[in-house]
């Protein structure tokens, strides 16, 4: 029994990290159609903000989360104004531009913060472990899980139940017609990009106590995030949730029975097979069909 529980918890923890990292990407990709290769760098910047606030100003991680969200969102806002908005409807160019931005961000961080690996102190209140149904799990991992789910609900709520979300859905279906009905689509895009960037920054800050913080850390996360989004189906938030759950549980389970190398390989093979037969992903939006 406790084995099953601990295995499910491990999978959920993996899923929550995937969800955190993929959520921002899914929003940006789903709404604006921008393939943001600099997404991993937003994650990295979030982690560095957490490190900076902690090591320079002594802020605890929990206290700095809101500030980190705002900082990285503001950066996303500026990048949208300076670069991205000139490139909508030019997918190839956005790929190149965001990739270039990613490389520049990495090097700027390396030049200013240094190339050393950094770490962020876990909040003391969450550094213990808790017993759940006979299994032991890290309190911090459960906290990350809760935050990931909370952020998902919040995002879904905004998308589903606010007038801004309604406008977003209209723009997603047809930008030109939505604009002709008086929706300020440029502003909506900008807000979306900033929000997605902010969520990525939060993801980076939240995972920083568990992983190492380095200028290159974003590269692995952007790959994971794309896997989640592609498998879940573009423009489907529920798909993002489901596919991160599936990917997390599967790779956790395979890694337990064999090892992480095999798990990584098998999961990728499975994704290739799935998108071969279901290119639109597991949860395709009905409106486009």
């Amino acid at each position: 029994m406790d084995f099953v529980v601990s295995q499910i918890l491990t999978g959920l923890s993996l899923s929550s990290i995937l969800l955190l990292v993929a959520l921002g990407l899914a929003i940006i990709y789903g709404v604006t159609g921008v393939i943001n290769l600099a997404h991993g760098e937003f994650v990295m910047l979030g982690a560095y903000c957490a490190w900076l606030l902690q090591s320079q100003f002594g802020w605890s991680l929990l206290a700095s989360l809101a500030v980190i969200f705002l900082l990285v969102a503001a950066l996303g806002w500026l990048i949208e104004i300076a670069v991205i908005r000139h490139l909508y409807d030019r997918p190839l160019d956005t790929i190149l531009a965001t990739w270039g931005l990613g490389v520049m961000t990495q090097q700027i961080v390396r030049l200013t913060a240094g190339g050393e690996l950094r770490y962020v102190q876990m909040p003391p209140a969450l550094s213990g472990s808790v017993d759940i149904l006979g299994a032991t799990d890290s309190a911090y991992r459960l906290f990350v899980l809760a935050v990931a789910l909370g952020l998902f609900m919040l995002t879904w709520g905004i998308y589903r139940y606010t007038s801004f979300g309604l406008k977003l859905r209209a723009i997603t279906q047809n930008r030109a017609i939505a604009s002709s009905f008086g929706i300020n689509s440029a502003r909506a895009y900008r807000l979306t990009f900033a929000y997605g960037a902010g969520i990525a920054g939060l993801a980076g800050a939240l995972i920083s106590p568990l992983k190492s913080v380095s200028p290159e850390m974003g590269t692995t996360y952007v790959v994971d995030a794309f896997m989640v989004v592609v498998l879940g189906g573009v423009q489907s938030l529920v798909g993002t949730l489901a596919s991160s759950a599936v990917l997390g549980e599967t790779s956790g389970l395979i890694a337990y029975y064999s090892n992480d190398t095999i798990a990584k390989a098998l999961v990728l093979v499975a994704i290739v097979i799935i998108i071969r037969f279901r290119p639109q992903g597991l949860f395709a939006p009905r409106v486009r069909a």
Binding site: S6, S13, K211, S212, M217, T220, A255, N259, D260, T261
Partner: peptide, 20 residues
């Protein structure tokens, strides 16, 4: 005897195995 990919950063399954 187990090997993880270079640059791997998610050890929760490994730690589960340590536990069991």
């Amino acid at each position: 005897e187990e090997y993880v990919p270079l640059g791997h950063s998610e050890f929760s399954s490994v730690i589960n195995k340590f536990r069991s």
